[in-house]
Write a protein that binds this DNA or RNA. Structure first.
Lengths: 131, 131
DNA sequence: CACGTATATGCGTTCAAGAGTATATAAGAA
DNA sequence: TTCTTATATACTCTTGAACGCATATACGTG
């Protein structure tokens, strides 16, 4: 196992990560909240730690785990290449919703001017190519 | 196997997805570009299709595969809960870089005003709050 | 010291995903 | 029809990740 993708593929690990969003937690706290056997928690925490998703601080016999940002950034970077793909999709939904709550929407113009509306990553899409 | 996370955990599948970003491709084209045995490509495409990452169009004996946006959005939604975590981190880096190549120290706005109804894959970080 | 708590690790088992090979299906082309 | 190209599927084998259980380590307390 290696990549950040493998790490987050495991549901229990994702649960742990989500739990740590709010604040750092000890192994026991995670164990109780997620109702997961302690060795399971420890083993997943080990994987997460070695992958850089979390780091631990020693507090007496406890170990407090907290999130680290880097791997999430890496995930986001990978996802970035697909953003144009679905931001376009979001736009379609937005246009739909805009039409929904636009009160006077009568006589839809055959060609509505696209509003400038600059937001989110690259707004230039389109380029047919799909034959 | 079920979740979108399991799907993208496989390196070959990620390669296929990345390949399809530029444009739709036939199985044979994918096979050649990725130097991957044809059954392997077909099997991964099947998984990707059933998970909604791609869809196929029939073109004579060929099948043209192209990306679909939804699963990527789902990934982005999951990632969203961690954004605050690392946007902070990015900000630190940005501030650093800004100081690097900003010789004249141009009054960077302390707080950008939020535009009405924000959306699109969130590019807005800011909002400190994290301790 | 002995004892309880908190966490980590070792071991055996199970299970399913990926790979490889062969083969099936389908659609042109001759 | 027969042949060739393009893609899908069936089957077997291997591997490795996750789990359960037992145990080791470490710290605090009496």
């Amino acid at each position: 196992m290696e990549s950040v993708f493998d790490i987050i593929a495991e549901p229990n690990r994702r649960a742990i990560l989500s739990l740590l969003v709010s604040s750092q937690q000890s192994v026991g706290e995670i164990e109780r909240q997620l109702r997961m056997p302690q060795p399971t928690v420890s083993k997943h925490l080990r994987v997460l730690r070695e992958a850089g998703f979390v780091e631990s601080r020693v507090d007496a016999q406890r170990r407090l785990y907290r999130l680290k940002p880097e791997p999430f950034q890496e995930l986001d970077d990978w996802l970035a290449q697909f953003r144009r793909l679905w931001s376009q999709h979001v736009d379609a939904l937005e246009r739909h919703l805009d039409r929904m709550d636009a009160p006077m929407d009568r006589a839809r113009p055959t060609k509505s001017k696209t509003t400038k509306r600059q937001r989110g990553p690259n707004r230039e899409h389109d380029n047919g190519e799909t034959k």
